[in-house]
């Protein structure tokens, strides 16, 4: 970032025309630095992948190898023998999917109420909602556990799903989202004499979808990887989610094999990776939207 008069541009930028004449040192330096960062970010993942594809006795190969030239799948077979990966994925998908849908719907409704509807105590209520974000889950887990027991839901997936649906962060995001929509829309509707419900349904609800998508993706990402609540709330391995199953691959007293553990890690990445490929665009667009399209 030394010599430039370039603007910060967010449009898809053209390759700088000047670069034909003399090298753009700013660009070169930036790309080198970013490449280093990218290698540090992706390197450990590559190492994990390539190690999972080596036999246990090769797992600590040094110098490290980052590409699986001669893949050996025995560790993967071992994972499937030790864990019911399909069930783990199904559980994780059910839990995260229902939490995401639940959060999208409830957050959109609550966010809309906080943004666009007038009622007494709105500010105070919103502050309370925000404040709950600050309470660590570890603080409330014991009473929640007893509550779940009282509801007869101990050691079920519902015990993971239900408490996660009310979302302060999602409500906050949706409120900001609705506030960001142009107000003349609603004015037009209200001139037509539409009721608040009609205004919501025909004007705002359709526009809310991109915002809900962000809430959904963030919820999915967070709960797919959640470790602490499943650690406490589920006991039967039939109710385990992926992260829990993986940790138990490490084995007691060092009897586990690193290649097997890493094979499990790689397998658990696959569903998230698929989600990443599809969700990434939506999320990035959501978070960076409005950049001049």
């Amino acid at each position: 970032m030394t010599t430039t008069t370039e603007r910060v541009s967010t449009r898809t930028p053209a390759v700088p025309a000047r670069s034909r004449r003399r090298p753009n040192w700013n660009l070169v330096l930036r790309i080198v630095l970013l490449m280093i960062a990218a290698v540090l970010t992706l390197g450990p993942v590559m190492w994990t992948l390539s190690t999972s594809l080596r036999s246990p006795s090769e797992s600590f190969k040094l110098p490290p190898s980052f590409f699986p030239w001669n893949p050996d799948f025995t560790s993967y077979a071992q994972v499937f023998r030790q864990l019911d990966i399909v069930l783990l994925v199904l559980n994780s998908a059910l839990v995260t999917g229902l939490i995401a849908v639940g959060q999208m719907v409830t957050a959109a409704m609550a966010g809309y109420a906080f943004a666009n509807l007038k009622f007494r105590g709105r500010g105070a209520l919103f502050s309370i909602v925000l404040a709950t974000m600050m309470v660590p889950v570890q603080v409330t887990i014991v009473p929640v556990f007893m509550l779940i027991r009282g509801m007869g839901l101990s050691d079920t997936l519902l015990a993971l799903i239900l408490p996660a649906i009310p979302t302060a962060f999602g409500t906050f995001l949706m409120r900001q989202y609705f506030l960001g929509l142009p107000t003349d829309l609603a004015e037009a509707a209200s001139i037509d004499g539409a009721s608040p419900w009609r205004t919501f349904r025909s004007v705002y609800a359709p526009l809310a979808v991109p915002g809900m998508a962000i809430v959904g993706i963030l919820a999915f990402n967070f709960h797919w990887n959640e470790f602490f609540r499943p650690l406490i709330m589920t006991i039967s391995e039939q109710n385990f989610t992926l992260p829990l199953g993986l940790v138990s691959l490490q084995g007691n007293l060092g009897t586990g094999s690193i290649s097997v553990v890493l094979a499990g890690v790689v397998l658990s990445m696959i569903p998230a990776l698929v989600g990443f490929i599809f969700g990434q665009r939506a999320l990035q667009d959501g978070l960076t939207a409005g950049s001049g399209k």
């Binding site: 246990p56 006795s57 600590f60 490490q250 007293l253 060092g254 009897t255 586990g256 094999s257």
Partner: peptide, 14 residues
């Protein structure tokens, strides 16, 4: 903790 590196290290003569 567990030390799941142990088998791999021992089996690779380290």
């Amino acid at each position: 903790g567990g030390g799941s590196s142990l088998v791999g290290l021992f089996a690779s003569n380290r």
